[in-house]
Design a binder for these strands. Structure first.
Lengths: 118, 118
DNA sequence: GTAATCTCTTGACGTACGTCGAACGTTGCG
DNA sequence: CGCAACGTTCGACGTACGTCAAGAGATTAC
């Protein structure tokens, strides 16, 4: 994507016409692609599935890192990607930061992709 | 993803437990991530939307390239990614190759991602 | 205030990705 | 056959990405 630097706000759920509703312009396509890219990594997919299993309490970085067998720095990086895509939200509790999933964002992404949706 | 080289077959629609059904293992997460990655590019999103608008006749490379303002070589590369993910299918008609969308693959991906699905 | 713990950021490294021009294959048509 | 049109592959280039160690912030406990 060496064209325009993505200075977009992707923290809100994606909001544009579905893929199957007609030909998308470049801006809408970018909005969708950026959110897909946030999830298009095996580690982040796995992290999302873990967080979706604890939607209320959330899970902290120090518990996620050993579960995916990566350094905390790397997991923090992945969580940042997910956060910037609005897919998760982190709240501090003492020294820990508990991450919770944002199902609405995932749901919005899903609806935009759905070939039956238009 | 510098761990294992993805020698997986991704041409079939993704088939594993949904994200929200429980914690995914690394293999399932990879299967999902590879398909998401195939679509996680603004050009490919746009191409998919164009193809979904002509699901029966399909569109050939030489018509897609000017529509996204890229070289035919680049568009061919993107179509290859989509083809390897099972999201499109190309059939030759004379010198042209007409690409048609594979809504089942997109639908399967959508169901796996859906936070309401489990 | 000091120490301990958790988290995030920075810098660096290797790899993967998007793009193009040029070369190569394929198909159809004089 | 020889040529033209379409498509893919190859090689090269710059950029983006995933990873970690090391350091910097933040918060709690003593």
């Amino acid at each position: 994507m060496p064209k325009a630097l993505p200075l977009l706000d992707t923290t809100e759920p994606v909001c544009c016409a579905p893929l199957a509703a007609g030909v998308l312009d470049a801006a809408d396509a970018l909005a969708i692609a950026l959110r897909l890219k946030a999830l298009a990594d095996p580690v982040r997919v796995q992290l999302m599935s873990m967080l979706l299993a604890e939607p209320d309490t959330g899970i902290c970085t120090c518990d996620l890192a050993p579960a995916v067998e990566l350094s905390e720095a790397t997991v923090s990086h992945h969580l940042k990607q997910l956060r910037e895509a609005g897919l998760v939200e982190g709240t501090r509790k003492g020294t820990n930061v508990y991450y919770r999933p944002q199902p609405e964002a995932l749901d919005a992404l899903c609806r935009v992709i759905d070939p039956r949706c238009r």
